[in-house]
């Protein structure tokens, strides 16, 4: 009675306890540790992954509910050795500090930009209300996202995998 799903485009299955949060399946089962386990309660967003084309906190998803789901994690958000525009903007603006929140930030904001071609600062902040950062004080993250709007059209390609 294993649960089957696709992970970054690849078929996987999981035969353990179906109540296990997707987060733990990714980190412990698949040993894909890019997705971070921080609050385990749906507040911090560090565990955000794409499920069925939507960014959701993976700590809140029992794997048993994900039969057939398409899951994309930070490891699959851009082709190997490539960065998507959000990741690139984070590098260019020296945004990163400890880094623990950033996998989740990248997932949430990549999706956000796909849906909002011309975001405002307050719109980005609202979109980040479930992605917390203890280090950076946020504003530079917003600066980086705003710069994408100015320089290029958002990356639809990166999330469509």
């Amino acid at each position: 009675m294993a649960v089957e799903f696709t992970l970054n485009g690849e078929w996987r299955d999981f035969a353990g306890d179906p109540r296990t949060p997707l987060l733990d399946v990714l980190r412990d089962g698949c040993r894909m540790t890019g997705t971070k386990s921080v609050c385990r309660a749906g507040f911090c967003g560090a565990c955000t992954v794409m499920v069925g084309g939507e960014p959701v906190p993976s700590c809140q998803r029992p794997i048993g509910m994900l039969e057939g789901a398409e899951i994309v994690t930070i490891e699959g958000i851009a082709p190997p050795e490539e960065l998507n525009p959000v990741q690139r903007a984070f590098l260019e603006h020296d945004v990163v500090q400890c880094g623990m929140c950033f996998p989740g930030m990248v997932i949430t904001l990549t999706d956000f930009l796909r849906r909002n071609a011309a975001p405002t600062r307050s719109g980005i902040k609202e979109a980040l209300s479930g992605n917390m950062c203890r280090c950076t004080g946020y504003e530079r993250i917003i600066d980086a996202v705003m710069s994408i709007r100015e320089t290029e059209t958002p990356a639809a390609e990166a999330v469509s995998r």
Binding site: S37, L83, L91, E92, D94, V106
Partner: peptide
């Protein structure tokens, strides 16, 4: 100089291995 961070790329791609990421089977 405004030198960028050398650890940023791995941190935004989820490759950085923190202590919490080191418990394999």
């Amino acid at each position: 100089m405004d030198m960028p961070r050398r650890d940023a790329r791995d941190k935004v791609t989820g490759r950085t291995r923190f202590m919490v990421d080191m418990a394999g089977s």
